[in-house]
Design a protein around this nucleic acid. Sequence first.
DNA 1: GCCGTTTTCGGCCCGACTGTTTTCAGTCG
Length: 577
Amino acid sequence: MVRPNEEVEALLQEYADLVLITGGDAFKARAYEKAARAVGGYHADVSRLDAKGLQEIPNVGRSIAEKVTEYLRTGRMPAVEDVRSKIPPGVRELMGIPTLGPKKAMLLYQDLHISSVPQLLDAIHQERLRDLKGFGPKTEENILHGIALMQAAGDRVPLNVAMEVAEDIVAELSAITGCERCTYAGSLRRMRETIGDVDILVAARGSGPFMAAFTRLPGTAEVIARGEKKTSIRTAKGLQVDLRVVPPDSWGAGLQYFTGSRPHNIRTREMAVHHKLKLSEYGLFHAKSGRKVVSRTEEEVYARLGLPWIPPTLREDRGEVAAGLRGELPELIQEADIRGDLHTHTDLTDGLAPLEEMVEAAARRGLRYYAITDHAPNLSMQRMTDEKVLAQRERVRELDGKHRKMRLLHGTELNIDADGSVDWPPEFLAGFDLCVASVHSHFNQGRDALTRRLVTACEHPEVNIIGHPTTRIIGKRPALDMDLDAVFAACARTGTALEINSHPDRLDLCDDHILRAKRYGVKFAVNTDAHAPLHLANLRYGVGTAQRGWLTAEDVINTWPLDRLRRFLRKDALARA
DNA sequence: GCCGTTTTCGGCCCGACTGTTTTCAGTCG
């Protein structure tokens, strides 16, 4: 059900973690990490490759290729199973807590026999960590904070994980005879940033074959409930999926109901009552007679309530019903509106693919322009230099024009330093077509310093886009503590766009912040931050997030024609007017 | 364990921050 590349990636990453936990060679662990990343980002399906083909993947050599081949043949990787038998899975889980790495996790296990998050919480409350070497009061505090952060994300999974599961199931069920309609609903259809469980809806006259097929899917680990109208399963990874089969005539009402959100549904049902009607998942009915009015399509249901069809990404009871009544729903940005990607990497820094491959993949996606923005020198681990970036620029200029329909831009992703300054002097930066600037360090500066820092970056004449503006990692790192309103105002004033980073672990800015920023007149850039050709497909999640922030194509600079975009990139107040 | 304008061993992502220690180990990007 999950792409084999991702299965293998997870397995190799797990092995890398276990090597570190057991105190193995750090370089070996890094080799597995690099291989895991490369497999995850590789364009071809690894299950169709032999050992030789696997070794074509960067950072996959003979040893790893053999392990992968064996796994694909037998479903097992003995090397991983070996270490697993020595280290309980909970120990690795501890590494998921920020500030807890392999060494501390192993110490907790060896000295205190802790192998789960609840056990760790107990131990902290019993003050059993106090005598542990290297653990002080501050460490305890950080661990507690980290656990709270993890628990806030709860059992929800990232948007892309749920999406892949849902699309597989929809494809399977759609192929069954008698399936008139099939799609996913719920928070996934609304493109929420994390998903609690997946809702699948089928329109068909009989439910039997669908329920049967659903429980027999390869990814089904457990059948939670099985009935005529609804069946629930849990996947091997613990994600719950509900299947509901409705009569074809109820499709629209069912889809509306199961898409939610609950507050949106309450709002629409109130409107129904107001019209002396009753709205349920089966249709819109006359309250008194019980006679059905409409139910076949969502459009009909909304229309009978006096509303235009409301896009799922707006159905959060954030004023969409009132706006619909006034005929003022925004014309939401669509994925097809995006003409270019303005934040991408190559293997010159931490990307996985060479420039040519990234450009090729972008052209295949039908983009009209594409910016290469590798990391700048101050992110020292990436070892960028003036020479390297200038050599890259020459290659970009050579490649530009090879694709008749797509132009190339040469940019960079700068680091916003603690004081708001960035890599390279202005005269060097002027040589780039555009500059993204992002925070990569000093996350805990304090609110005032962080605010000043971001505002200073906006005021830089060569900084065009603030990359992943809050630097949050969903479920792992909170957003920077800063005065967002001051930053939004600075963006609007200086002609600096805010990025909507499409990576499913980031989705940064998030929908709430987008809504706020838009009121200041800020412009946005929906970028993938791709580190591999496959990541270019994450754009849909960024566009979904932009829709949840009520954005139109006009609000987003990379929907604009290139000449208009170039004027914006000059940061010239006159050009913006 | 991978890689090679160094061809079979020796280097591999480097520096900063944090909290602990009292000179440094662990974690992170």
